[in-house]
Each structure stands twice: as C-alpha cells, then as structure tokens.
C-alpha cells in the first residue's frame, strides 16, 4: 500500500515536471491566450464563483455580506412557495419546448437539406429569422393575443362563433403558459438549427450510396443508420444551445404576461432570480437561485450527452 502511494506520487511529480517543461516551451501560446483568458475569467468564471460564494450569505449590496450557511437554500426549497411555482413553470417549459424545439430544429434542417440550393437559402432565412429578429419582435404576440376584441385571435374566434366574449389570453393563468410556449417554440430554431443545416451538407454522399446497396430501405432507416451517427457532434452542440435556451426563459414570459404576472402563473426561475436580484436587492438569495439553476443545467447537459452517445447503435 505504502509503496503504491509512493509510486503514485513519483508519477504525479514526473507528470508535473513534464507539464512544466512543456509550459515553458509554449510561452507563446500563453501569451496569445492571455487576453481572452483574463477577460473570460473576469466576466464568466469569477461571476459564477462569486455567485456560489454569495449564495451562502445574506447580502443586500449596502451592508457587507453576512455568512448564514445553507439558510438561503433551505428557505428557498422549504418556504418559498413562489419559487416552487417558478420551478414548476420552468420545468414545464423546459420539458416541452426544449426537446420539441431541438427535434424541430433537426427535422427542418433535414427536410431543407434535400431542396435545391436556392430554395434552401431562402428556407434557412425563413426558419432562422424568428430567432434573430425575435428578441425585438415577439412583442407582436401581445397584439395578436390582446385581451379585448381588437386582438386578432379573439376577433377570429368570435367571428367563427367559437367564443362569445374575448378571452384574456395574457392575464388568465390558464392560457399564459401555453402561449409563452408557442412563442418560445417559434424562436427556438437558433444556432443549433444552423449547425444542423451545415452539418447535413457536410455528410459524405457515398455513404448513402453504400447504404442503399447494403439494403437501407427507406428514408427513416437512412436517417437512423447513416445521417444521425454522422451528425453526433452537431447534435451535441445543438443540445447545449437548447438547454441554455430552455432553462433561461424569462424575457418572453416577462414581456408578454407582465412582471409580476397574475397569480405568478408565468413566473420562471429566472424571473424569480431577477425579482430578488434586481428588484429586492437580496443578492445572497438571488445567488442561491442562480447556483441551483446552474447545477441543474450542467446535470441536464451531462444526461443528454450520455443519451446522444447511444444514437444510431
């Protein structure tokens, strides 16, 4: 046992020395990396680290942070009913729009792929436009779904005789979440979609011919045995982007349903974080929410990666 530990340390020391030597030789690399690394550390790593630190404190910006242990997490999970509403909503939105948006991205990219070049160029713009323009434009849905008879959806339904009185789409808790989900789905063909379109173009044609000769019968078999395995790296990238989008929802719900929304029916975890961080200035509590959210996102990402590894086998 002792010998084993000694050997382990010798090995470690050796590895470390090799690394040091390598590092000395590649000084240039570090010089090139340094500007980005410093900024990246300052604006991406440090915030997460401080967020974790503040989550164990009571901090209201004016006074120095006071260490209170796990109190934030305990009250978050056991006492904060609105947080649980937020968790439920975020979870619902993530579970429905995340996979649906992800699958839609792939499906559309796959269907577009076989179109002639000029149609493909137009189709990519058509499907991608909502996600780039969306941030400034989804406010249009609050006109479409306006609560009075001037709203397009209400007017249409009343004309068809389905309803008699206008429905308060964005103030009635029953309709808020579904409408938000529609809007989020509308905007969900983002970077992942582009990555899929480009990836599909890059697949070697001869593989399909070989597959045909080997007895691949229809487009679905072709998809599962040839296309998907070739697309694995892009699928991973798309998954990362989809998770980020699905758990980060808050702009859409806040713009459409108001902040705060009726009965907190459209509250998400990020809205809750926004509320405590930027309206009530309870930074410690908000940091605890951020930390939890972050943990869930990483776990979810790992789970999906291990799922994607099995594709096409």
């Amino acid at each position: 046992m002792k010998e084993y530990i000694q050997k382990y340390f010798i090995l470690r020391k050796h590895n470390f020395q090799v690394a040091c030597k390598k590092a000395k030789r590649s000084k240039m690399c570090y010089l090139f990396l340094a500007p980005y690394a410093i900024l990246f550390f300052a604006f991406n790593i440090l915030p997460v680290a401080t967020s974790i630190f503040f989550s164990f404190t009571y901090y209201n910006v004016l006074e120095a942070p006071k260490f209170i242990g796990l109190q934030n997490y305990i009250s978050l999970i056991l006492q904060d009913d609105i947080f649980l509403v937020g968790v439920k909503n975020t979870f619902l939105i993530a579970v429905i729009t995340g996979p649906l948006g992800y699958i839609a991205s792939f499906l559309f990219a796959w269907l577009i792929n076989e179109l002639p070049r000029w149609i493909r160029t137009i189709a990519v713009v058509v499907f991608y436009a909502p996600s780039i323009a969306g941030t400034g434009v989804y406010i249009i849905f609050s006109i479409l779904f306006r609560g009075d008879a001037y709203g397009q959806v209400n007017a249409l339904l009343m004309e068809m005789g389905i309803i008699n009185t206008p429905i308060l789409w964005l103030t009635n808790p029953d309709y808020m979440l579904p409408i938000c989900m529609i809007v989020i789905l509308w905007m969900s063909l983002g970077s992942g979609f582009l990555s899929f379109v480009a990836g599909l173009q890059g697949i070697d044609r001869s593989q399909y011919e070989a597959g045909y000769m080997d007895g691949v019968k229809n487009r679905w078999q072709e998809l599962w045995y040839i296309t998907l395995p070739n697309m694995k790296p892009m699928l991973m990238f798309g998954a990362v982007m989809a998770i980020t989008g699905a758990f980060g929802v808050c702009d859409v719900t806040m713009t459409l349903c108001g902040y705060p929304s009726t009965d907190y029916a459209a509250r998400t975890v990020v809205t809750h974080l926004f509320d405590y961080g930027f309206s009530r200035f309870e930074m410690g509590y908000a940091s605890a929410i951020a930390t939890l959210l972050f943990l869930v996102m990483i776990l979810c990402n790992k789970a999906i990666q291990s799922m994607l590894r099995r594709v096409g086998t």
């Binding site: 990246f40 982007m241 951020a290």
Partner: peptide, 24 residues
C-alpha cells in the same frame, strides 16, 4: 481544460451571471 470550461460557459445565460457581473 480551458476549452472545456469555455464549452460549459456556453450555457451561462446573462441573468445567471448578471448580479456578480454588475458588482464586478
């Protein structure tokens, strides 16, 4: 390692890092 950290950072949304970023 650095690159892997960057890939994880793809998942940070603006709001998660918003508060500490403001302080920084």
């Amino acid at each position: 390692t650095f690159f892997n950290v960057v890939v994880v950072a793809l998942m940070f949304t603006g709001y998660v890092t918003g508060i500490p970023n403001y302080l920084i």
